[in-house]
């Protein structure tokens, strides 16, 4: 690890001001992405501004058809929260599939969406449910927030304060994890929302995306059979030592069917 200075922020305001004054400083939340990155010497921040444990970033609330999850909420809290299990059980299920218990005990939802790893799980739920990302400066719709591999709409110094999820009628997530890393080789989040069916795919492409053909087909007939014969365009998917594009395209179709079957029971 290259040397850096550690700063414990006492408030979001203080963290924001520190970042504005130090362009090479970086936020530290759960550290489950950032610390491995530092250990591998893939980043060299001047300072780490620790926002872990800030009261302003804590809490899960439900009401008026919305589920609010603060940016500092750890994966384990989302996985075991009664409010989440009641409002959007698929989100609690997804959180319980992230990494392993030790990672879930420290990693946060704000850190995960800010990082936007193309194989991370939360981006599928955020896009699949049409959630809003509330930052220290504005509200950003999921569609505008995720901008491809490790890229988001966040400006330097902007902090994710909370996620606002509209409660879906029904939703499910199916993930094919990489057997060693646990990250998604393909993960598909399917939701029946007030504005129609949404299908979001993570792990397969350079960034999370909506599979519009599947949405249209499921909008007509919400059943795994409605997806028969549909395929994502393999040319736009990732290819690496783990899987070819074609294999990933097939995984996406299978995960989509499994997610719908979780909901319909067949």
């Amino acid at each position: 690890m290259y040397p850096f200075s550690y700063v414990k922020a006492k408030s979001l305001k203080e963290a924001g001001e520190f970042l504005a004054a130090h362009p090479d400083a970086k936020l530290l939340a759960g550290g489950m992405t950032l610390i491995p990155t530092l250990k591998a010497r893939l980043a060299q921040p001047s300072h780490l501004v620790d926002i872990g444990g800030l009261a302003e970033l804590a809490g899960i609330k439900e009401g008026a058809g919305k589920l609010l999850i603060a940016g500092g909420t750890r994966h384990h809290e989302v996985a075991t929260s009664d409010a989440v299990k009641k409002a959007i059980p698929a989100l609690a299920y997804l959180a319980n599939l992230i990494g392993d218990p030790q990672v879930r005990n420290r990693g946060t939802i704000g850190g995960s969406v800010a990082n936007n790893d193309p194989a991370a799980d939360y981006p599928a739920a955020v896009l699949g449910l049409g959630a809003t990302v509330v930052t220290t400066r504005r509200e950003i719709a999921a569609e505008d927030f995720f901008q491809g591999m490790f890229t988001t709409a966040l400006a330097p110094g902007e902090i994710v304060v909370r996620l606002v999820f509209p409660v879906a009628k029904r939703a499910a997530y199916a993930k094919f994890p990489h057997p060693a890393s646990g990250y998604a080789m393909a993960g598909v989040f399917v939701a029946e929302t007030a504005t129609g069916v949404r299908v979001a795919v993570t792990g397969a492409a350079p960034g999370v995306f909506r599979w519009k053909e599947a949405e249209a087909a499921l909008g007509r007939n919400f059943n795994p059979a409605a997806l028969a014969g549909l395929a994502v365009n393999a040319d736009e998917l990732n290819e690496d030592i783990h899987a070819t594009r074609e294999y990933r395209a097939n995984l996406v179709a299978v995960m989509a069917r499994r997610a719908v079957a979780q909901i319909t029971g067949k």
Partner: peptide, 12 residues
């Protein structure tokens, strides 16, 4: 809470 002590700073 069980955590990986190699993925946390002593200062944290």
């Amino acid at each position: 809470l069980a955590v990986k002590s190699c993925t946390m700073l002593a200062v944290q």
